[in-house]
Lab assay of single mutants.
Amino acid sequence: GLPEGWEMRFTVDGIPYFVDHNRRTTTYIDPRTG
């Protein structure tokens, strides 16, 4: 799974992105792969 505090969501286009609730940021880069 994802690191603690992270969540995976999808855009309206079906593109996955990642929400970091710890820092309240979003990124398209998987936190597991950097």
Rank of each mutant, 00 (worst) to 15 (best):
G1M: 14
G1I: 12
G1E: 15
G1V: 13
L2P: 04
L2Q: 01
L2W: 07
P3L: 04
E4Y: 09
E4G: 09
G5E: 05
G5Q: 05
G5I: 04
W6A: 02
W6H: 01
W6F: 07
E7R: 01
E7F: 04
E7S: 06
E7D: 05
E7T: 06
M8I: 14
M8D: 00
M8V: 09
M8P: 02
M8G: 02
R9L: 13
R9K: 13
R9N: 07
R9H: 10
R9W: 08
R9Q: 08
R9V: 07
F10H: 10
F10W: 14
F10P: 00
F10K: 06
T11G: 11
T11Y: 02
T11D: 15
T11L: 03
T11Q: 06
T11N: 11
V12T: 13
V12N: 12
V12P: 14
V12W: 12
D13W: 07
D13I: 05
G14T: 00
G14I: 00
G14M: 06
I15H: 09
I15T: 12
P16N: 05
P16G: 06
Y17N: 04
F18M: 00
F18Q: 00
F18V: 01
V19T: 06
V19M: 08
V19I: 14
V19E: 08
D20E: 06
D20Q: 06
H21R: 08
H21G: 08
H21M: 11
H21P: 06
N22V: 15
N22K: 13
N22D: 09
N22G: 09
R23F: 09
R23S: 15
R23T: 15
R23V: 07
R23N: 15
R24P: 05
R24F: 09
R24A: 13
R24D: 14
R24K: 15
R24W: 10
R24N: 15
R24E: 13
R24T: 08
T25N: 12
T25W: 11
T25L: 15
T26M: 15
T26E: 15
T27L: 02
T27R: 04
T27P: 04
Y28R: 13
Y28T: 15
I29A: 06
I29H: 12
I29Y: 09
D30G: 00
D30M: 00
D30I: 00
P31S: 01
P31I: 02
P31D: 02
P31G: 01
P31W: 01
P31Y: 02
R32K: 04
R32D: 07
R32M: 06
R32F: 07
T33Y: 08
T33M: 12
T33L: 13
T33H: 09
T33D: 12
T33A: 09
G34K: 11
G34A: 14
G34H: 12
